[in-house]
Nucleic acid binder design. Structure first.
Length: 445
RNA sequence: CGGAGCGUAGCGCAGCCUGGUAGCGCACCUGCUUCGGGAGCAGGGGGUCGGAGGUUCGAAUCCUCUCGCUCCGACCA
């Protein structure tokens, strides 16, 4: 992509309304534009990252055997009256009345609707287990939205719902979600720690939140520093293997890690003192097992092998997709701008032409862009008639992890420069070598 | 919703107290020079001062109402 043909409205100065670093950089990098309190347009660069994150979530959900579908944003109030939540949910739920005076609402979550879908079409234990999910816009009418996409009113979220024959099967679904989430966050370059949590309005017994450590996090967290070193890496997971999945969950949840809601001083005191940490975290996901809380009142039942009709055991599992952009930036930036992890970057490489209009530089940059794209890599070529400093500043701000710098000086020796945004280290090499190196870096991503 | 602020050009701000018909920096346009970390010079365009009432000869400025946004608090993925 050529920058002169793209739409990247970067800001040199900090917008007054942005208080935290991710919000500031998202505005400055031309990723989002606020349209109302807590409601944003996603400009092309932000939209690319949003799509990339969504893609990773889809891939990992389907790898775990979960089935995508899509439910509407608007829901009839009657479904919520069945579960009793229409009255319970309070002002956070945006209520709407249509032209026929029917009560509607902009969905803050979808337990009722998915349960309705399930009960309409599933009646046998033979159809279980089943996990359905979607990624859809939600709305919660927060009293005070803030921090950009981290605490918006409209937000994009993956929410999944498992239906199982009994508690044991449902807890396997719970564990399966935990592992798939761990892998999802790792692919995004994040360390997200599962912490035992409160169930809030969803209800239920078992629940974990996933928190990314960041100074600007909304929750206070208490943890054994050893949890931050845990990685799934590229180990193979058989999501149908209950023992293996449960073992991974134990590995990631046996060390102490709690939010302030569930913090237990006595248990925390047992953590070796040098590993006892208190910090802040951003919640990027939560999983729940809630049994028959919705299936019972809403009549979501199946017939067992013995011929008995029983309510299914359910859980729901969410990932804050739009919020993740903020969380990733909070966890990965410096004073010049964003530093995208390779897994979610809007473009995999940036090309900076130091002497726009110079025949050799222009030709070399065109060739570099074509070569990268031929390898299936995405690149943003800054072909503006700007000075080097301005181009570097823009690249640093938008945070592409790798930059290819093409200038007359290097080109005289047949070399371009490959620079890591994260380390700042540069290496001179031929254009061909730079393309190969980038292809290697992104192999398998 | 309680408390505190702010709405003046695309962005960041001054002007308001003490009314006299709007300004600065960045961005944008033109030209020349410059060219490896947000260039220089010259010229230029752009604003119903959030909106509605009111006071006044005259309102960005004073008064009333209203809308929006931000911050602190309670709430929250």
């Amino acid at each position: 992509m050529r920058l002169t043909r793209y739409f990247l409205p970067v800001l040199k100065e900090n917008p007054a309304e942005a208080q935290i670093v991710s919000h500031r950089f998202m505005l400055r990098a031309g990723m989002i534009k606020q349209q109302a309190a807590g409601i944003y347009s996603w400009l092309p660069l932000g939209y690319r990252v949003l799509r990339r994150i969504e893609e990773i979530v889809h891939e990992e959900q389907q790898r775990a055997g979960h089935i995508p579908l899509l439910m509407p944003t608007l829901q009839p109030a009657d479904l919520w009256r069945e579960s009793g939540r229409y009255d319970d949910y309070g002002q956070e739920m945006l209520r709407i009345r249509d032209r026929h005076e029917r009560d509607m609402l902009y969905g803050p979550t979808n337990e009722e609707m998915i349960t309705d879908i399930f009960r309409s079409h599933v009646s046998s234990y033979r159809d279980l287990p089943l996990t359905l999910y979607h990624i859809q816009w939600k709305f919660r009418d927060e009293i005070r939205p803030r921090f950009g996409v981290m605490r918006g009113r409209e937000f994009y979220m993956k929410d999944g719902y498992n239906f199982d024959i009994d508690k044991e099967a449902a807890l396997h679904a719970y564990n399966r979600h935990m592992v798939s989430y761990l892998r999802t966050y790792e692919r995004m370059g994040l360390t997200a720690i599962p912490m035992r949590a409160d169930s809030g309005p969803i209800g239920g017994d078992d629940t974990h939140e996933f928190l990314v450590l960041a100074a600007t996090g909304e929750s206070e967290v208490f943890y054994d520093d050893a949890v931050t070193g845990l990685r799934l890496g590229d180990r193979r997971i058989d999501y149908d293997d209950r023992d293996q999945v449960a073992a991974v969950c134990r590995e990631f949840t046996s060390l102490y890690a709690r939010t302030d809601e569930t913090h237990d001083e006595a248990a925390f005191a047992a953590v070796p003192e040098d590993r006892r940490k208190v910090g802040r975290g951003i919640e990027v996901g939560q999983i729940f097992y809630f049994g028959t809380k919705y299936s019972e009142p809403m009549g979501a039942t199946v017939v067992t092998a013995e011929g008995n009709r029983v309510p299914v055991h359910m859980g729901s599992h969410g990932i804050g997709v739009s919020r993740l952009l903020g969380a990733i930036i909070e966890a990965s930036h410096d004073d010049r701008g964003i530093i995208w992890p390779e897994g979610v970057t809007p473009f995999q490489a940036g090309i900076v032409n130091l002497r726009q209009g110079d025949g050799a530089c222009d030709v070399a940059c065109d060739a570099m862009l074509a070569a990268l794209e031929a390898k299936g890599l995405t690149a943003l070529y800054d072909d503006r008639d700007e000075r080097a400093g301005a181009k570097f500043a823009t690249m640093d701000l938008i945070g592409l992890p790798w930059r290819v710098t093409v200038g007359p000086r290097g080109l005289a020796n047949g070399k371009v420069e490959l620079t890591s945004r994260r380390s700042g280290e540069s290496e001179e090499m031929t254009p061909e070598a730079a393309v190969d190196r980038l292809a290697q870096i992104y192999a398998g991503r």
